[in-house]
Amino acid sequence: MRIAVCIKQVPDTEARLRVRKDGLWVEEEDLPFVINESDNYALEEALTIAEKTAGEVVVVSLGPERVKDALRKALALGASRAVHLAEEAFQGGDALATGRALAAAIAGQEVDLVLTGSQSDDVGYGATGSVIAGHLGWPHAWLVMGLEIEEGGTSARVTREMESGMNEIFRLQLPAVIEVQAGINHPRYASLKGIMAAKRKPIERPSPADLGLEASQIGAAGSRLEVLEVAFPDSGEGAEMLEGDAATMARTLVEKLQREARVL
């Protein structure tokens, strides 16, 4: 089974962010970037399925040059090749434009399954996977907590988390786009052997024309959403610092959660 995994490189969630001068995004210089958390789980899921089915994993990412590091890591973890949509024309898009470009890149790979994370840790639209599925015309599932490829490899049994703690379990015909949640498995570490071998694995860099895309369909030009500003909210009112030793603070916190916030 051949599986495409879409990964996004995002600022490390622990990094301190500063708004860029133009106010439209964060300052990227010196910012540590990592693979988006839920994408790690998508990749692990894909690698496990590929191992069981003697298949292969192709990782796909759209983003600037720095994204190469994320792709190398995915290759080190066991993906066999990578597709990097690196050209300037691809960049700066909303979920619609980005999903369109990714779908076009995947369409050429003859895959049986597309896995992605459910949401990115930076902008968090949670929409790119749906757009990809729409363009490919494939069935789609979001917030997936369990995935099993069924006998014969033509369908998947999918467990989704619903509100109120219930699960929804259903069957999807393959090919399909499945967006997994963080926590669905235990992502492996890259072995040092894998890291060394990753150097020799290919990273394709198709141009928009290679994918049959016009510049107007992708990147900022192909977007329907325009970012006006990113900003930190004014620090909120009503924050209260608890005092005392750990036991006292824990007791006060539980009381407040019960009486004031009414969440317990």
Partner: peptide, 14 residues
């Protein structure tokens, strides 16, 4: 370089 960073990541996790 980036390869060393990956190596560090693995060993640090271990």
């Amino acid at each position: 370089g980036s390869q060393h960073r990956l190596v560090r990541e693995t060993v640090r996790s271990f």
